[in-house]
Design a protein around this nucleic acid. Structure first.
Length: 245
DNA sequence: AAGCCACACAACCGCGTCACG
DNA sequence: TCGTGACGCGGTTGTGTGGCT
């Protein structure tokens, strides 16, 4: 038995939204707030799928959206964040106020990809085209540590990430962003890795997927049915600090 | 002016995750 | 613990538009 459809396929409009539909959606959300997307179309008198309503609101109608061209600063930020996070568009969007994940994804695919390619850089690895792509020393797929700072997340999706970017976990005191560690200790080589759990999983029921991504410096994420986020400090290729966040 | 093509972006689809009963 | 519904995310598709021939 398959997944039940998200909405009735019959009697639902598809394609471009009309002005009237937009107005209905805006009026309904103003009156009742966001959420309840499944029941919203009926309540708002819209012949639309709830998902479609949610998307229309988030990507187009939300009042806090910044419309218009991306600035050079936003370009740079997107490239940096992509090198750290990969195609995690929602996380990237969380760092760009007024921009949506869909908008950034489209912008990446149409502009930035080409921009990087024209500079001779691989848009996925951010390394020069044709350069061999080495995993990190523990066998994980690894993104290179870029030579710029990780910007703090303004709207982090998880308390762990918020905590990581805003608090110094080693000192258990707020304020000093983790990235400053590297400024203070330029000899440190910091890596963000997503990898299989480092400890034995024999005592757990784990649907282990051989997936691992290493995204940046300072944060290691392990997953395999469950997930670990670790902050790592490297020196001469050897991890000598690795803390669970 | 018409046809074609490439591009940009809105919208859709499928699936993973989470919350709740 | 399991099943189900709702939500959110990322990949993909569809369509409008502008430029070129």
């Amino acid at each position: 038995m398959g997944r039940s459809p998200c909405c009735e396929k019959v009697n639902t409009n598809k394609g471009a939204w009309t002005k009237e539909e937009d107005e209905r959606l805006i009026a309904h959300i103003r009156a009742h707030g966001e959420g309840g997307w499944r029941s919203l179309p009926k309540a708002a008198g819209l012949m639309r799928c709830g998902k479609s309503c949610r998307l229309r609101w988030i990507n187009y109608l939300r009042p806090d959206l910044k419309r218009g061209n991306f600035s050079e600063e936003e370009d740079e930020l997107i490239i940096k964040l992509h090198s750290l996070l990969g195609n995690k568009w929602s996380l990237i969007a969380g760092r760009l106020p007024g921009r949506t994940d869909n908008e950034i994804k489209n912008y990446w695919n149409t502009h930035i990809k080409r921009k990087l390619l024209s500079k001779g850089l691989d848009p996925q690895t951010h390394r020069p085209l044709g350069e061999p792509y080495n995993g990190c020393n523990n066998g994980n797929i690894s993104r290179p540590a870029p030579d710029y700072e990780i910007p703090a997340f303004e709207n982090p999706k998880t308390p762990e990430i918020a905590d990581f970017f805003q608090y110094d976990r080693f000192e258990s005191s707020p304020i000093e962003p983790a990235v400053h560690k590297e400024k203070d200790h330029p000899d440190l080589n910091l890596d963000l890795c997503i990898s299989l759990p480092s400890h034995s999983s024999a005592d757990r029921t784990v649907d282990t997927k051989p997936s691992s991504i290493s995204c940046s410096k300072g944060l290691q994420v392990n997953y395999g049915g469950y997930c670990e986020i670790r902050y790592c400090e490297r020196n001469a290729g050897d991890f000598y600090q690795s803390r669970l966040l």
